[in-house]
Computed example of a mutant assay.
Amino acid sequence: MNATTTRGALLAALACVLVGGSFTANSVLGDYPYAGGQFLRYGLACLLLAPLAGKGTAARLRALTLRQWVRLALLAAVGMVGFNLAVIAAERTAEPAVPGVFVGCAPVVVAVLVPLLDGRRPQRAVLYGALLVAVGACAVQGWGRTDAAGIAFSVCALAGEVGFAVLAVPVLRPLGPRLLSATVCAVAALESAAAGLLADGGGWLRRPDAVETSALLWQAVVVTVVGFVCWYMGMQRIGAERATLFSGLIPVAAACTAPLVGTGSYGLAQATGSALVGLGVALGPGR
């Protein structure tokens, strides 16, 4: 494994650990309007990312085709706003572990889908590693009570997780990680505002209290600004298939941080699942 691959793996791992930790922050935002929270999160992240986008930002954006703009809109709608909405909707009738188990299967889907879209066969090592990651993620989270609606929304969450990686592949090279992150955050903020106005009218946005403000700042600054840039920098170096292997670290990080706020425990099942995720991540790159 060369230096570029190593840096890419570390960046992808850091991004997924930050996202996993954000699940704990989500637990204190249950009473805040969903669309308003997404608008504040992605709007603030866009403002912070814009100065970091680099030179020639306007020229690179103007060079995008209509098809690429549609892809960016789908990336924001499916992989960001839609993903978070699907998780929240699933947890109304299902225990949180249920959407988590489905999302944990994303490495397997990406390991098959990305090569097929490129006209090549899936890599055996990556596919085997993805299977281990999926099994480990399921072991970390377990399974819980659900119904048909919970399963349906969990499948939508899986589609959002896959879309966040797959839809970004063709626009990552022309935009780069920083400008891509800033652009999709701007689009996601606009989509959130539109969804809030349509669904909740004037009550879609309110002033958050101190605890909600802290959670939203964590999600905007740490998870979105740092996490998104690290994720796309890692994906740029090691590819979407290998980068998505590290999404198995999301439930591991969530399980490790949950006891800190009294929303879960870390036991033998979580330790075993974490070990399987680690083995799958190591096996995927063929190391």
Results as ranks from 00 to 15, higher is better:
Gly144Pro: 13
Phe228Asn: 03
Cys105Tyr: 02
Leu158Thr: 02
Arg242Gly: 05
Gln68Ile: 10
Ala106Cys: 02
Ser22Thr: 08
Gly273Gln: 07
Ile88Pro: 07
Gly100Val: 13
Ala159Gln: 00
Val281Gly: 00
Leu205Glu: 07
Gly144Arg: 11
Val211Asn: 14
Ala50Gln: 08
Glu161His: 03
Thr244Gln: 14
Tyr32Cys: 06
Gly8Cys: 10
Val223Gly: 00
Cys256Thr: 13
Gly79His: 08
Ala255Cys: 11
Val252Ala: 06
Gly136Val: 02
Gly264Trp: 11
Thr244Arg: 01
Ala97Asp: 10
Gly273Tyr: 08
Phe23Asp: 02
Arg207Asp: 11
Met233Pro: 03
Pro115Asn: 00
Val226Leu: 13
Ile238Gln: 13
Leu52Met: 10
Gly119Thr: 04
Leu127Thr: 15
Gln68Thr: 10
Gly284Ser: 05
Leu44Arg: 10
Ser192Cys: 12
Phe83Gln: 09
Gly239Asp: 03
Cys138Leu: 15
Asp147Thr: 01
Ala157Thr: 04
Ala188Arg: 02
Ala193Leu: 04
Tyr232Asn: 14
Val155Ile: 14
Gly30Ile: 13
Ala258Val: 13
Val187Thr: 06
Phe164Val: 01
Arg237Trp: 11
Thr213Arg: 09
Leu197Phe: 06
Val261Phe: 04
Ala210Ser: 11
Gly20Phe: 03
Arg92Lys: 14
